[in-house]
């Protein structure tokens, strides 16, 4: 497979969220706004690339029987790094994402790529694969975050979108349900349906 193919397959054709349905918990949990989706996506992408890198380097040293626990330790180490760095430099975003940062450890996308790709491929290809999947995951989260933010709070990356009628108090009348829990399920349901259509045509 060429570099371009490896890099772009995560975008639509093998998108981890919309097509493979992996890593759904953070997808639903943090996407109340586009910026949260982007932050979570980038944090996961970093862990994905670094764990793919390390797994592909030491794949021949790991005995086959203990490979899953070894992968989990590698992933958990990078998650701890991300957790501490975000807490130090972007505390506001860290607060918003909260529980879902340590939960990157159990994100099936990360372990899935380590097991299915990095443990069988060269170092360079594994980095490219991590990058491609990371971009696809970030794209999915940012898209869902943007849709929910526009519909639910009438804004896009914090900038207000003036398409809603204004009530007596002067605030826009938006579909508030989209920033609440049910909106996450409903929004993702429609996006998956649209993506299925696009990837098939």
């Amino acid at each position: 497979m060429s570099i371009k193919e490896t890099l772009s397959k995560g975008f639509i054709k093998e998108n981890p969220v919309f097509i493979l349905l992996l890593g759904l918990c953070p997808t639903l949990g943090v996407t109340t706004s586009a910026i949260n989706g982007l932050g979570m996506g980038l944090a996961t992408a970093f862990v994905l690339i670094m764990s793919n890198l390390v797994v592909s380097i030491i794949k021949n040293q790991i005995p086959n029987k203990v490979r899953i626990p070894s992968f989990i330790v590698i992933i958990a180490s990078f998650v701890t790094i991300v957790d501490l760095v975000m807490n130090a430099y972007v505390p506001a975003l860290h607060e918003q994402l909260g529980l879902f940062i340590p939960l990157i450890v159990v994100n099936c996308v990360v372990l899935g790529r380590a097991e299915a790709f990095a443990s069988k491929n060269t170092v360079f290809n594994s980095i490219i694969d991590g990058l491609g999947m990371g971009i696809g995951f970030t794209f999915a989260l940012t898209l869902l975050g943007a849709v929910r933010e526009i519909l639910g709070s009438g804004a896009f990356f914090g900038l207000s979108v003036p398409i809603y009628p204004i009530d007596e108090g002067g605030s826009p009348v938006t579909m508030l349900v989209f920033v609440l829990a049910p909106g996450a399920f409903i929004g993702l349901g429609y996006l998956i349906s649209i993506m299925n259509r696009i990837s098939k045509s």
């Binding site: 049910p182 399920f185 409903i186």
Partner: peptide, 21 residues
């Protein structure tokens, strides 16, 4: 047709979440 399978399940989950609210 376009909603069969996973998409409709998510919509149902959304309505269930609405009920739990």
């Amino acid at each position: 047709k376009g909603m069969r399978g996973v998409p409709i399940s998510f919509i149902v989950a959304g309505i269930l979440a609405l009920a739990f609210m």
